[in-house]
């Protein structure tokens, strides 16, 4: 992967066509290809060798197309690959890498309408909670290390800082956790894309966790600029169940 293909170097904003063509490469030999033909734009996202288009958009000359970065449209269930537990009174400050979603939009800079979304990496779907009352989410395995030094710098991912505090008197066994990414803002730094920090306070197995999404940009050693606003607005704190413990679904 070339340096210019990293999320941080993708020319976000208004799409500038060169000889009526716009191409942007991504991981795993994927490409976003847009071709302008008189009053229409044809688009394709997928394997680089394919030369066909999957969508057509009819537009006028005054319509401008934009390429924006975005976070997934559903919450993401995070599962650490090895068993992870937080002792009572302790905190874990970690980063979760969420794959980028490309947003093709039209309109003016202030008022954009989304035409299509292309996830750079397809995430499989999962269910968070009980089968009769849970919610649909994407599934992702994350090492949940203490800092983002181990994060692959070439990846087209967004670094989402998370702080988990165990305020209960029991051990918090982090089998899986839900990260509500539609509430997060996206920032661009010098070396990476970031979201604002999510603070989750665990109070006990059958208690709802307090989720606070910080309004400020995350504390990193680089200057950050807002790239996109959250998909869903949030006021202050969320009280939701953020951890789910496996219960056996099969009785016989």
């Amino acid at each position: 992967m070339k340096n210019t293909d990293r999320g941080i170097f993708i020319p976000w904003g208004e799409i500038k066509f060169s000889s009526n063509l716009f191409e942007q490469k991504f991981e795993e030999n994927k490409i976003l290809r847009l071709e302008k033909r008189e009053k229409e734009v044809r688009s394709y996202f997928g394997a680089e060798e394919v030369r066909e288009y999957t969508s057509r958009f009819i537009l006028d000359r005054e319509h401008h197309l934009y390429l924006n970065p975005s976070l997934p449209d559903l919450p993401v269930v995070i599962k650490p690959p090895v068993e992870l537990s937080i002792l009572p009174g302790c905190s874990l400050k970690t980063y979760v890498e969420i794959p980028l979603v490309l947003e093709l939009a039209y309109g003016s800079i202030k008022k954009k309408q989304v035409l299509q979304e292309y996830p750079v990496k397809s995430l499989s779907r999962s269910w968070f909670g009980d089968p009769d009352s849970g919610e649909i989410a994407y599934y992702l395995e994350s090492p949940m290390e203490f800092d983002n030094k181990t994060i692959n710098p070439d990846s087209c991912c967004i670094q989402c800082p998370v702080t988990i505090t165990n305020k209960s008197s029991q051990l918090l066994s982090l089998e899986r956790m839900i990260l509500r990414v539609p509430y997060l803002t996206l920032y661009k730094g010098k070396n990476s894309l970031y979201s604002n920090r999510t603070r989750i306070t665990y109070r006990g197995q059958d208690q709802v966790s307090q989720i606070v999404i910080q309004k400020n940009p995350p504390e990193v050693n680089e200057e950050l600029k807002i790239l996109s606003l959250p998909r869903q607005a949030i006021d202050s704190g969320l009280l939701r169940k953020s951890f789910y413990f496996i219960k056996t679904l099969y009785e016989g």
Binding site: S124, F128, P131, Y139, Y250
Partner: peptide, 10 residues
Amino acid sequence: VLCLDEPLPF
């Protein structure tokens, strides 16, 4: 892609 990762397959 249409099957959910969780609950686990039975």
